[in-house]
Amino acid sequence: MKLFQRFLMFCLCIVSSCVFADAYCSLRDPVAQIKQLYPNKTNQLSIVKEIDNRARIQVQAELPNNDLHFGELGRHTLYVAMNNDEALGYIHVRSEQSQWGLVEIIWAIDKNYRITNFAFQRCRSPKKKLLNNQAFKNMFIGKDFTQLKQYLSEDGVTANKVLIAKAVSAPELANVILRCALKTLLLTKLIWHNDLHSL
């Protein structure tokens, strides 16, 4: 019995070293949440990759005046919803700094790196009901990085009139969602493309 207890403790020590090197921005309950976004999925993959300073510099180059919060660096998870051997799409949770603290958004992305859906995982903004506005959501759905970038104003951090027109009551939150979408699509392609290409 003692030998078994020591073996169990040894195994958990090894596992826990991975746990301490925790991946940030993970889904609260991946199996159930991915099933909601991809009802046809039978299984899933999770790919954990490091987002380092090189990625940060690339984000700054592609999206001038933008930066990554320190919590956005480190190990992050991209989930792949699968129907047996076929990839249905990707899910990534990303945080964006706002005046109400960090806003965490769950992004569903298709295999061509276009947004298919999104939802808040954490948002303290009093205007969070903006996501019930389908006209606003439709501004993102089906769009890729280049198309979404056209919503950026010249300052590179706020949304232009085209997007704000759909979010008149919550322009600050619309800015946060736009920045988050752009960084998510950019980083997904930069960091995970090779792994996803080989699926």
Partner: peptide
């Protein structure tokens, strides 16, 4: 002393509970 050290088995579908084992 081992502090947090546990495995949470989550491949249990939509309704069945996940199973956690450890400290």
């Amino acid at each position: 002393i081992i502090r947090e050290a546990h495995i949470n088995y989550t491949a249990t579908g939509n309704t069945l509970p996940n199973i956690r084992l450890g400290h």
